[in-house]
Design a protein around this nucleic acid. Structure first.
Lengths: 340, 340
DNA sequence: GTATTTTGCGCAAACGTTTGAGTGTTGAAA
DNA sequence: TTTCAACACTCAAACGTTTGCGCAAAATAC
């Protein structure tokens, strides 16, 4: 139980001053060859490592970036974390992960906590509740203090900062166009209510493509899930009541519930009805039939977000502010839930 | 762009000393009513928050706990994180998540990094590579420095610390006994190679139950997956070559590959062959047929681990050391991949 | 032999806090 | 008037670093 070596202890042990030790270890030319060697040998022998906290205080930077996500038990978010982590580590940064659990209050709390010196900047995706409330003061406050923030996936125009998003509209268009190309005529949409930005945008893509292809839009074929906990039965009802030859769902789960409902109705996927999902997770790959889906490339988004943030962190203060939005391209992964 | 309020600035602004400000904010009786009110009002107005880094340095504790896991894109680990996070936040602790990506070197690096002042203690699950190498010096070093460590899931006897595990043997026994009770005679096992402790233990449970029930053990019915990337075809081969009426797989993926192989062979699950998995993830719930499985209760494990760690952190130093191992009970979740 | 430069090291301040000890003023008891 | 406690506040050290500056001794130059 040796209580961690410090400069002070090395100094005492070797009978030199603290600054001599510090300088020696940092190869300062101020220190003589001999003393330097002696100190370095000692430090190495006892495995000296500088205390990060003290360094953070001194340098006024922590070399850690905070990431706040709505939930962690969620494939997409974990891939984003993975992407952030890779880039961050490469650049010598640590990552702190906090969860908002989709709660506004917890998002605020986490942000405040991390903003008080724990991190140099943030990467975050807004909690659902925050987007409903449209209250972003906690974020503007943080940015006002000069801490860079990068928003991803669930972003919002009101906050001025770097952003990483996918083009939800184009992604949705790709999916629906694909269905049309394969001969589908009556394409159902299973989406979320509009305050979830991605639901709104993907719905827009759906509508645009239909219009571009002169397909009549039938409101009955559009389902907007209000209550996630009840989504399975809502989707079942929807499928039972409507006759469709294809379904575009805005996430994996909805797609799978749709497939289940279709199968229970006595129809086959993809022979009778094609289904396309969004987000390429475990389920999409492993489900039978495996899901044709729009891939979001979470890892790439995380990497981009980390790069944007670190860029801001290491930029000289003279350079003028400017915010970028990078759009990570989606692409359609063809599997077995759509006909060839 | 106001650069974050400090005690010093408040002191200058209100023309008192720094210590007066500090004491006033902490409601010290040393400070007069009037000044205290004035200072508190000012602090509130400008939203003063003490700097965590400075506090950490002063108090020699950070109120954060580090968690290092082999991979984050993995349902079980995310549920553990979720559990840790809940308890940690309740107790006023922050959580730093780092990934070892199953690499020994990265595990060492992360540990060193976090050990240098960033966290008060660790919760971790060993990287696969670490278990192969059987090199735990990085962990013993950390514990020698007096930092508490809690190991979970992938644990090892050589390290003396608190541990949270599930009873893999009992869990496996429950599963296999269940299959026997339902009338299965030839139960296949799909496991991992033995240096992955959980694979070994679950295999042991399988063997024990068969022995207890006087069922002959047929080595041909035991598959040990060496190369994860190739597991799908290995399992397909295994199923094709052997006649079984049930399969016990040590994780979700293996279970699903088994089901696929069984179906491709022209047999039905669960009518012809029952399948049981381990770990209750998204896939188990949503797959068709949904999987009967041994639930690991990741969230509960995380919560237990956090409690153990915080307990150690807040214990007075006089109290003597003792290490506990808590075993989180598994239970069988019956779904549709086994016959009734 | 003195004047100047170089070498090798220590001092002290700073980062933002907390806190025990010290200090000066007030008011009351002796 | 002296003594002393109570009050309200400030000083300074500490946590572990880094770094500009100062200073003595040694080495060089004149």
């Amino acid at each position: 139980m040796k209580p961690k070596l410090t400069l002070k202890q090395i100094a005492r042990e070797l009978d030199v001053s603290i600054s001599t030790v510090s300088k020696a270890l940092r190869d300062s030319s101020e220190i003589g060859e001999e003393t330097r060697k002696k100190i370095k040998a000692f430090a190495k022998l006892y495995n000296y490592r500088p205390n990060n906290i003290a360094l953070s205080l001194k340098n006024r930077k922590t070399k850690t970036i905070g990431i706040i996500i709505p939930e962690i038990v969620h494939y997409f978010f974990t891939t984003v974390i993975s992407g952030v982590e890779q880039v961050a580590n490469e650049m010598g940064y640590n990552v702190i992960v906090c969860l908002s659990n989709n709660s506004f209050d917890k998002e605020v709390l986490n942000l405040e906590m991390l903003a008080n010196g724990s991190t140099d900047g943030f990467i975050l995706s807004l909690a659902k509740e925050t987007m409903q409330k449209e209250d972003y003061h906690h974020l503007t406050e943080v940015t006002n203090q000069g801490m860079p923030v990068v928003l991803f996936d669930r972003v919002v125009d009101e906050i001025h900062c770097d952003k990483v998003i996918i083009d939800d509209v184009i992604g949705a268009k790709k999916a629906v166009q694909y269905l049309l190309d394969k001969g589908s005529k009556k394409i159902g949409l299973v989406s979320t209510v509009d305050y979830v930005s991605v639901g709104k945008l993907r719905t827009r893509g759906y509508l645009e493509v239909l219009r571009e292809n002169n397909v009549e839009i039938d409101d009955k074929l559009i389902l907007k899930i209000e209550d996630m906990d009840n989504s399975e039965t809502e989707i079942k009802d929807f499928i039972d009541k409507n006759e469709v030859d294809a379904v575009f769902a805005v996430n994996e789960h909805f797609a799978i519930y749709a497939i289940k409902a279709i199968q229970e109705k006595g129809l086959k996927v993809p022979e009778d009805v094609s289904v396309i999902g969004f987000t390429d997770g475990e389920l999409s790959k492993r489900f039978i039939p495996s899901l044709t889906t729009v891939s979001q490339h979470g890892e790439r988004m995380g990497a981009e977000a980390a790069r944007l943030l670190i860029d801001k962190l290491e930029r000289k203060p003279e350079e003028e502010e400017s915010y970028r939005t990078v759009i990570v391209e989606t692409n359609l992964i063809e599997r077995n839930s759509t006909k060839l």
